[in-house]
């Protein structure tokens, strides 16, 4: 097999445009997903029973169905509800909803794993559930949450490639466009893999730096 280096040379700058879009999608969906997931996680830890039950059902749905299907549901469902936001926002919303479901589980799991004696000590000085969460459990959970949250963000970043199916012009889609005109699938897909790998390596590195800077005891 021979590598068509001229296509590679031409593709490198072209793919940069797609990369910017991918980063933009991942950043917005990441922020929305983390915020939504923390909110959902807190509800499942301290909310009223019906609210907890609904979060449970939501997380089950997210984890129990393929993301591709979720993307299609949002993409076709929003217009059906009268919301015409375009494929970019449909994609961002779908990824955010998906990410939030996984983050909610991380929050619930990590906070729930704080030793029971902590809650009991807080109760014994008269704290109520909400205060125990805010002053005792959450501060102890942030650091242990980091690896799992990083994983969720990395997964989100990889999942942005699925938005190519609803014609969002992100990294994968921009690669496919080059393939369509120059037919060099091996070169381009390999190049895409390298791009994703580089982005994710940077993300992991940032996460490790943040984790190291979080207070330990």
């Amino acid at each position: 097999m021979s590598i068509d280096w001229s296509v590679v040379q031409m593709a490198i700058p072209l793919l940069a445009e797609g990369t910017v879009m991918t980063l933009k999608i991942a950043a917005i969906a990441g922020i929305l997903g983390l915020a939504g997931g923390v909110a959902l996680g807190l509800i499942s830890l301290g909310g009223l029973a019906p609210a907890r039950w609904m979060v449970r059902a939501y997380v089950d749905f997210i984890r129990g169905t393929p993301l591709l299907i979720q993307i299609f549901i949002v993409f076709f469902g929003l217009p059906a509800m009268g919301l015409r936001l375009g494929e970019f926002w449909a994609g961002v919303i779908a990824l955010s909803l998906n990410c939030a479901g996984y983050v909610a589980e991380v929050v619930r799991g990590t906070v729930g794993a704080v030793e029971k004696g902590q809650t009991e000590a807080a109760k014994s000085i008269g704290m109520t559930h909400g205060k125990i969460l805010v002053y005792v459990l959450l501060p102890q959970s942030i650091r242990p949450m980091m690896p799992a949250l990083t994983n969720d963000v990395i997964t989100l970043l990889k999942n942005t490639s699925l938005l190519s199916v609803i014609s969002v012009y992100e990294l994968t889609r921009s690669g496919q466009a080059i393939i369509a005109s120059h037919f060099a699938p091996v070169e381009i897909f390999t190049l895409l893999a390298i791009y994703y790998y580089a982005i994710i390596s940077v993300l992991s590195w940032i996460s490790r730096v943040i984790e190291r800077r979080l207070p330990a005891w």
Binding site: G117, Q118, E120, A121, A122, S124, V136, Q140, W217
Partner: peptide, 8 residues
């Protein structure tokens, strides 16, 4: 508590 249960 037996095991102190201080907030670490």
């Amino acid at each position: 508590f037996q095991r102190f249960n201080l907030f670490p």
